[in-house]
Design a protein around this nucleic acid. Structure first.
Lengths: 118, 118
DNA sequence: TTCAATACTTACCTGAAGGTAAGTGACGAA
DNA sequence: TTCGTCACTTACCTTCAGGTAAGTATTGAA
């Protein structure tokens, strides 16, 4: 196959999920789309400070291939494209919930330690 | 700071959790240690087919720094070192549960699609 | 005396991820 | 006629994660 597969074989489920979610901005894109329901390319870009246009489309295209994201093109000028989560995307976001909470607690712990060491 | 921080600032919880779990073998190390309770370096190596010794210690050291893994050294010859999960490590593993199940379902879906396309 | 076992350590190299910056095409507004 | 908007696209470059392979220290066994 040609470009970056993201098919198996996988050693375990985590493996198979990580394959789809690893990428600097993917979890943030997921979160952004889940929060707003639907976002245009430019809105996503503004919502993810620091992302480059190249990485943003690249990640969006991969997530579309992976069935996480739906891409709707409106044939207008200037062009308008809307991105939203598919059912799979939404369920992935749910599955990421506990991990997000764990990370939240870790961040709080780190902050507390940093404050204690001041 | 010197080598690979893995402190914030983080944009969200996922971010903070990913920082700790990203690394080709980390989730597998987590899984292996959770399954067996305690493992020696060589046992881990044999349990993770394909891992290099360099990456294995590197990941173990980082996970120790991050408070996920406990390292117990026995002063013997030949040397003996045992690794196990800390409370944080175990809770991370739990938080990864739903993601693992999601990945499992994705892998099954991919397999079914591949079978259908044969 | 050499070898095996164990848990590293070190130097070097490659490939992929991601960043930067400029270009494209269509059309309406100024 | 030039500019701005929008959603890309392309070429080029840097960085770093990870791989390979060899070396280290200790001691008992053959």
């Amino acid at each position: 196959m040609a470009s970056g597969d993201r098919c198996g074989p996988y050693i375990c489920g985590i493996d198979a999920a990580m394959d789809v979610v690893s990428g600097k901005w993917k979890s943030l894109i997921l979160w952004e789309l889940d929060n707003h329901g639907t976002r245009r390319f430019g809105e996503l870009k503004r919502g993810l400070p620091g992302v480059s246009e190249k990485m943003l489309i690249q990640h969006l295209r991969e997530m579309e291939q992976d069935g996480l994201v739906h891409r709707e093109v409106y044939r207008e000028v200037p062009p308008k494209v809307e991105y939203s989560l598919t059912e799979h995307g939404r369920s992935l976001n749910e599955a990421l919930g506990p991990l997000g909470e764990w990370g939240q607690r870790r961040a709080e712990r780190l902050a507390a330690e940093a404050a204690a060491a001041s």
